[in-house]
């Protein structure tokens, strides 16, 4: 078996379809012996990115395209939609804040990207009026 595996997946923007993408990511990470915590973090990052695409992209094809590239050392995931692109206030979550709750630090919405950045080693976002690609890398750590 070669050291590198590439998997392409397209999911429709239906409820819970992000689980199919998360499952694919977890299978690839487990294949390369990522630890249990890293596998869960990868799944969560995939889920949050797919949900962001479904909620904000306004894409006409209503599809999310995912490329997984796993090596012995890392898993790279690129998640692309063909929507209208995202703005800076969507990126930092401020567009989604809504009315303040009892505690300002308990923000109910707009935290997906913060979660992804906290859990992954590298995150890159490319956006244009033709769509958005969120790429992230999780590196395998020694046990």
């Amino acid at each position: 078996m070669s050291d590198e595996h590439k998997v392409l997946l397209t999911i429709p923007m239906y409820p819970d379809m992000e689980l199919a993408a998360a499952k694919t990511g977890s299978v690839l990470a487990e294949l390369k012996d990522f630890n249990e915590e890293a596998v869960e973090e990868i799944q969560l990052a995939i889920i949050e990115t797919c949900i962001n695409a479904s909620e904000h992209s306004q894409s006409e094809d209503k599809e999310v395209h995912i490329q997984f590239l796993v090596t012995d050392d890392q898993l790279q995931v690129k998640i692309t939609d063909r929507g209208v692109g995202i703005t800076a206030d969507t990126l930092d979550g401020t567009r989604l804040l809504g009315s303040p709750g009892i505690h300002p630090d308990l923000r109910k919405r707009g935290r997906g990207l913060q979660i992804i950045k906290a859990l992954m080693d590298e995150v890159m976002i490319e956006s244009s009026p033709n769509g958005t690609t969120v790429s992230f890398i999780k590196k395998k750590t020694a046990e």
Partner: peptide
């Protein structure tokens, strides 16, 4: 698994 929408409901 808990996504950010689930977390918002817990809040």
């Amino acid at each position: 698994l808990i996504n950010s929408i689930g977390i918002s409901i817990l809040i």
